[in-house]
Amino acid sequence: MKSLVCLKQVPDTETQIKVNSEGTGIVTEGIKYIINPYDEFSVEEALRLKEKFKEGEVVILAVGPDRATESIRTALAMGADRGIHINDESLNQADPYAVAEALAAAARDVEYDVVFCGHRAIDDDFGEAGAMLAELLQVPQVTLVTKVEVSDDKKTAGVERDVEGGTEVVEVPLPCVLTSQKGLNEPRYASLPGIMKAKKKPIDKKTAADLGVSSEARLESHVYSMPPERQAGKKYEDMEPAEAAKIVVEALRNEAKVI
């Protein structure tokens, strides 16, 4: 069972995001980076499939600057077999289409039954690259996936996905793109031997030119801003619950006018 996992490195969820003084982006100094949490689910699922079939390969594919190597190594330490790192200045701030083009170009040299993406990257929050990659590879997509069962002949997969107000069970022919959603699994931690082994696993470095992609920007960002600062409002302390509840319920109607 061969899986290709598209992995993005993103700021740690603990990060306090600040907009730079020019309003052109965020302040990147001091940011700690992690694997996009949804991509971590993908790594775990790919590993489980390989373990279940007792054969195959898990390839990690990332577009990002030098620091992205660290996240690829973490995935290798979890158990993935090898990495492909597309490191190119022109792709560092790229929009999801340009990223999908680069991912697709790299995917063409890899054998896979399933391509995993996260359903969204928690930095730019676009949630587009997976579906775009599927279209570029001319394969089906199943998004927001919470359960995957691949048939013994690896020709189809039974997949459960989130839909509004419930779940949908689909059967999808392979190869396909699946986008991971919370609930898919509980990602493992890298073990110490895993970390040692990861150091020797290959990471293939590529540039946009190597892949023959020249990304044309399809989206442009302009002004970054902070959300309006929320002020602490009224706090009711040392009060009978009944009294506090009455005051707040009345305020919701008469002051905040939301009920």
């Binding site: 995001i17 730019d124 399809r218 989206l219 442009e220 960002s221 302009h222 970054y224 801003s225 959300p227």
Partner: peptide, 15 residues
């Protein structure tokens, strides 16, 4: 649109 789950906002255009 919000980014970083609403930790900041940015304006975008499709080119």
């Amino acid at each position: 649109r919000p980014m970083y789950a609403g930790k900041c906002f940015a304006t975008w255009t499709a080119t």
